[in-house]
Amino acid sequence: MTTQSAAVRKEKTRKKERYGRDLSLGRRLLNQWDIQLMVIPAIIYIFIFCYIPMYGLLMSFQDFSIFKGFWKSPWVGLKHFKAFLAAPDFWNIMRNTVVISLLRIFFGFPAPIILALMLNEVRNRTFKRVIQTVSYLPHFLSWVIVSSFVFSILSVENGSLNLLLLKLNIIKEPISFLDENKYFWSIIVTTGIWKEIGFGSIVYLAAIAGIDPQLYEAASMDGASRTRQIFLITIPCILPVIILFLILAIGDLLSAGFEDLLLLGSNPIQRPVSDVIDTYVYRHGVKTQRFSYATAVGMFKAVISIGLLAGANKLAKKTGNSLW
């Protein structure tokens, strides 16, 4: 049986060699039905789960109703987009989204780079290993658990942070971090850094490991101290990786976070500072079932995001580090 099919295949390859590209497309597809069969189901899957929802974006131009369905719902043009732009919360949501994202880029983006640079200076392998393993831990915890840590650590009654600050005599009275809106942005950004700093450093450590050691040797011959080598060699060498991730971060400017904001900002009192585009879409779409309106808001975000990504990429192209 096997030898027979092998013979058939040999025959096929011989045919292929003889006819080469002359075989019709249908024939060639048939000849490679087995590898097409590996790919086509996945492509159909992607079509259903990714492209049909994209098509579903069209309902942002409709007054979609579940009972009428997509085909019978009336078309209303840009009504929902206009409604969002005119909504009383619009500027507030945009501000929260952009400010939280910018804070993340400003503080959260350099954090893993700095950690990687510091880890790279450690000579003791065990120490390095322990710090790395421990710093990866938060990445593997769910946001449900992380948010409950935050509530527990920051609590007014015996939260660890208040206990620490009281002990160090920095404050006289415990601070109610969770009930005052002015702390919210700091909490959300710090929590994000805490969760991802270790894991985010992996990529930069890998980039640092790829640097040619001769560069360091040459620099130390020229009398550059280790500290100076960080700035003269390490950072310039990993700059392409940094720029790559910065482009992606800029493309995500309108994704200020979702699960974390939903959980940490669950208290409605915090909505003036915690509501961002994604949580707004969730609340209006899923909770109050204004499907068309929420889809319009989501699409508004998706389109701007693509534009931002393309723009950032164009800028990066000038430095020769573009994404595509």
Partner: peptide, 13 residues
């Protein structure tokens, strides 16, 4: 990877 239908169309799907 760069563009998706988003939460609501996926939810309805």
């Amino acid at each position: 990877m760069y563009f998706s239908g988003g939460l609501i169309p996926s939810y309805l799907l």
